[in-house]
Amino acid sequence: MATGGRRGAAAAPLLVAVAALLLGAAGHLYPGEVCPGMDIRNNLTRLHELENCSVIEGHLQILLMFKTRPEDFRDLSFPKLIMITDYLLLFRVYGLESLKDLFPNLTVIRGSRLFFNYALVIFEMVHLKELGLYNLMNITRGSVRIEKNNELCYLATIDWSRILDSVEDNYIVLNKDDNEECGDICPGTAKGKTNCPATVINGQFVERCWTHSHCQKVCPTICKSHGCTAEGLCCHSECLGNCSQPDDPTKCVACRNFYLDGRCVETCPPPYYHFQDWRCVNFSFCQDLHHKCKNSRRQGCHQYVIHNNKCIPECPSGYTMNSSNLLCTPCLGPCPKVCHLLEGEKTIDSVTSAQELRGCTVINGSLIINIRGGNNLAAELEANLGLIEEISGYLKIRRSYALVSLSFFRKLRLIRGETLEIGNYSFYALDNQNLRQLWDWSKHNLTITQGKLFFHYNPKLCLSEIHKMEEVSGTKGRQERNDIALKTNGDQASCENELLKFSYIRTSFDKI
């Protein structure tokens, strides 16, 4: 039985969820670079991206490699990797027998973001014989899940209580170790020597080791999670996991709180800001991140802002960003909400898709409305799209047979046209069989910064309504002859009103 693990408890099935942008060198404390989270699957090609990484700022997932063999891993080693800020997950990587050479110096898994409450997941690794993470000293947050690894031993010899604050939620089941077939031998045991430290858990006094050649490092209890030197002297209180010299914040392997210019500090002093819960960055760093993602459509890219001495992905609820200094300031009234469309555009074809934009005031991208039916549609669209004030790209209304009016965009005031449909149009209306009105132009103002209007096959939309939009939106004169079809717009509506004058002759039985 794995020490510190839980057996036999019912657990939810383990679901495996399925960018080499360097964020800056980590400095003297770390020998390499800070790398983003990685999802490495199918083959070993991307694994080489770990070569210079000291910190993975995010998670590391290595999974679904069915053609790899043990010899493929023999020359692979990433000794610079010290810390993973989120979680480490391995799933069905064939041929991998140990992690001792792959990650010989991995010391800390912070667990800032977890995989279903777990910071370390080893699942269905069919050839893994031992973990071998002999320098792993601290899992700051989260638990361990090690399950269905039929060859995995050296679990009962690990004292997880020396690595985690609590072992109650560890789930370590259905491994070879369960069948008591392992016969784990710690260093020196074969020669009758006791080389590794022994600890007591559940009444068992057991030597602690990761492999037959690597003991588990056990520091004096007084050192807590700070770690200790090879001689057993406690590291500085700002260290986490390990250090090369005692009581020196510049000799830590990793930091308990924050890293700044080669030393570990309790908090980031001005003019620095907390970033990702582990390091200090200056304003320029946060500003660069903001600008890199301002026009990016890459998933996970955030326009970072500053709030409460932190550089964070977005302002919290009730705050909006001051564009001059990136500071989050309290909103006066309802907060603006910028919604970034991942692929640059979004099609609204149902109430469900409209709900995804609920509360958005600025759309960074283009909207395509293609709704053919739905219950209580006008009210639903207004509830979900009615706060949109600005669209950076274009607005396209296409084959939306259920629409009679666009009044559900009740606050839309600006279409920038930074991206144009077919390279020309910022407003595009095609084949809307029941569209009769755009907006009530006596109450609604709309500016279209650039781009043209396109109207074709809107049989109940009168040309007068379209011409009014040209005047109000500032697009009059931009359109070419064929942009607004004269014969297919309003051709099934009563669009022309003329005053009919009647004269009559009164007659009676005795007068003409």
Rank of each mutant, 00 (worst) to 15 (best):
125 M>Y: 00
204 Q>A: 08
323 S>C: 07
313 P>N: 03
302 H>T: 13
204 Q>F: 08
157 T>W: 02
144 V>S: 05
290 H>M: 12
205 F>W: 15
336 P>E: 09
191 K>H: 09
58 G>A: 01
165 D>H: 08
277 D>N: 14
89 L>S: 02
285 F>V: 02
119 A>T: 04
124 E>H: 10
216 Q>W: 10
289 L>E: 09
305 V>L: 08
150 N>I: 12
225 S>Q: 05
263 R>G: 12
179 N>G: 10
159 D>S: 09
118 Y>S: 09
204 Q>T: 04
192 G>Q: 15
232 G>A: 05
218 V>D: 08
299 Q>G: 06
227 G>L: 05
53 C>P: 00
263 R>W: 15
142 G>Q: 01
251 K>V: 06
135 N>L: 02
316 P>T: 04
270 P>Q: 09
147 E>A: 14
184 D>N: 08
204 Q>M: 09
50 L>G: 02
289 L>M: 15
220 P>Q: 11
327 L>W: 04
156 A>G: 11
309 N>D: 06
44 L>D: 11
212 H>R: 10
232 G>W: 07
95 G>T: 01
263 R>Q: 11
324 S>V: 13
60 L>M: 05
239 C>L: 00
65 M>A: 13
75 D>S: 10
286 C>W: 03
55 V>R: 00
329 T>A: 06
221 T>R: 10
282 N>T: 07
269 P>L: 08
286 C>D: 01
88 L>M: 13
86 D>C: 01
162 R>C: 14
315 C>A: 06
268 C>G: 00
205 F>K: 10
146 I>P: 00
67 K>I: 12
336 P>M: 04
177 D>N: 14
326 L>E: 14
278 W>Q: 05
286 C>I: 13
212 H>W: 09
135 N>R: 08
280 C>W: 00
236 H>G: 05
249 P>Y: 03
228 C>R: 02
333 G>K: 02
166 S>F: 05
41 R>S: 15
35 C>D: 00
99 L>E: 00
52 N>G: 06
154 Y>L: 04
240 L>N: 13
51 E>V: 07
275 F>R: 02
83 M>N: 00
250 T>V: 06
330 P>L: 07
135 N>I: 00
206 V>P: 15
170 N>Q: 05
89 L>M: 15
250 T>Q: 04
324 S>Q: 11
52 N>P: 14
43 N>D: 05
78 F>S: 02
80 K>C: 04
77 S>N: 11
249 P>D: 01
147 E>P: 01
104 P>W: 00
155 L>P: 05
175 N>K: 14
184 D>I: 05
134 Y>G: 13
325 N>E: 11
275 F>G: 01
91 F>G: 15
241 G>L: 03
110 R>N: 04
109 I>R: 00
66 F>P: 09
198 A>L: 09
309 N>G: 12
95 G>L: 01
130 E>L: 04
163 I>P: 00
195 N>A: 10
235 C>L: 01
258 F>A: 10
179 N>L: 04
136 L>Q: 05
129 K>G: 05
40 I>K: 00
52 N>A: 09
98 S>A: 10
311 C>T: 00
107 T>K: 15
287 Q>G: 15
64 L>D: 15
41 R>Y: 00
190 A>L: 10
85 T>Q: 10
179 N>S: 08
279 R>V: 10
100 K>R: 11
68 T>N: 01
302 H>I: 10
62 I>S: 00
275 F>L: 04
38 M>V: 08
276 Q>Y: 07
175 N>Y: 05
259 Y>M: 12
195 N>P: 08
261 D>N: 09
237 S>T: 07
169 D>K: 07
152 L>Q: 06
307 H>L: 05
